Simulated scan of single mutants.
Amino acid sequence: MEQTQFTPANYKSNQSVRWCPGCGDHAILNSLHKAMAIVGVPPHKTAVISGIGCSSRLPYYMNTYGFHTIHGRAAAIATGFKVARPDMTVWQISGDGDGLAIGGNHFIHAVRRNVDINMLLFNNKIYGLTKGQYSPTSDRGFVSKSSPYGTTEDPFIPAELVFGARGNFF
């Protein structure tokens, strides 16, 4: 008989969380555990798929199926997984660099195709894992190791990308 009520603990793995103290990713992880318990999809019917970066460590902290893929390919892998296993609930975890820089084209087409995946975009406006490079969502003029004189580009606004790709939900 399948369990019908879940708690956040049902979705937590036994792995030690390796994010920096005070990082906002901790709050997102805890919120995701709580949300999954409320939604009630069993852990064995859930897959969490990520790319590369701090946020992309999240599958290790889930008691679900998980896949830590290569940089920028989380949307492509999550889409393929969902098409192959439509009975599964699929969560894609990406940072702003992973999801909107190298993975930007995959992001746009996953939105455009409206494949039934849940995409969490951790948008902290910086490449955190590489300790301070600017990202596609960094504000114009942002000074970093990779932009010592400030960035010269306007940032991507993820919502505008979704609307431009004719996404149905954001």
Rank of each mutant, 00 (worst) to 15 (best):
I70Q: 02
N118T: 15
Y134M: 01
F163K: 11
S94V: 15
A159M: 09
N118H: 15
A101Q: 07
T4E: 06
F142Q: 03
D25M: 13
S147L: 02
I70R: 00
Y61C: 09
D96R: 03
H26I: 10
M62I: 09
D98N: 03
N118C: 13
I49Q: 09
F163Q: 05
A78L: 09
M36C: 13
E153G: 00
V143I: 15
I70P: 00
H68S: 06
Y134G: 00
R57T: 06
G97T: 04
T64V: 06
S13H: 07
A47N: 07
V48M: 12
E160G: 00
A159W: 05
Y149M: 13
T4Y: 06
G24T: 12
F169T: 04
G95I: 08
F81E: 05
G40H: 07
Q92D: 06
S146K: 07
R18L: 13
R85Y: 14
Y149N: 14
G95W: 12
F170Q: 03
Y65C: 03
L29H: 10
R112A: 07
D98V: 04
H44F: 13
I157H: 06
M62R: 09
N114E: 13
F122A: 11
P21D: 06
P136D: 10
M119T: 15
P136G: 09
P136I: 07
A159R: 13
N118A: 07
D87R: 09
R166Y: 08
R57L: 15
F142Y: 10
T7F: 07
K131I: 09
T64D: 06
N105K: 00
F81A: 14
M62V: 04
D154A: 04
G24Y: 11
M119F: 12
M1V: 12
S55D: 09
R113Q: 13
P8K: 13
E2N: 08
L100N: 04
G51F: 11
T152E: 12
Y127D: 00
T137K: 01
D116M: 05
R73C: 00
E2T: 09
K82I: 06
R73Y: 03
I102L: 10
L29E: 10
S146A: 08
A110H: 02
G53C: 05
G103K: 00
R85P: 00
K45S: 14
K45A: 14
T7N: 03
S56V: 06
P42T: 10
E160S: 01
Y61H: 15
G167Y: 01
L129D: 01
P43K: 06
W91S: 01
A75I: 04
V115H: 08
F107I: 05
S138M: 03
A9F: 01
S146L: 09
G66Y: 07
S138W: 02
G164I: 02
N118F: 13
S55G: 15
A78T: 13
L121R: 02
R73I: 00
M36W: 08
N124H: 04
H106L: 01
F163L: 02
W91C: 03
G128E: 10
S147H: 14
L32E: 14
S144N: 03
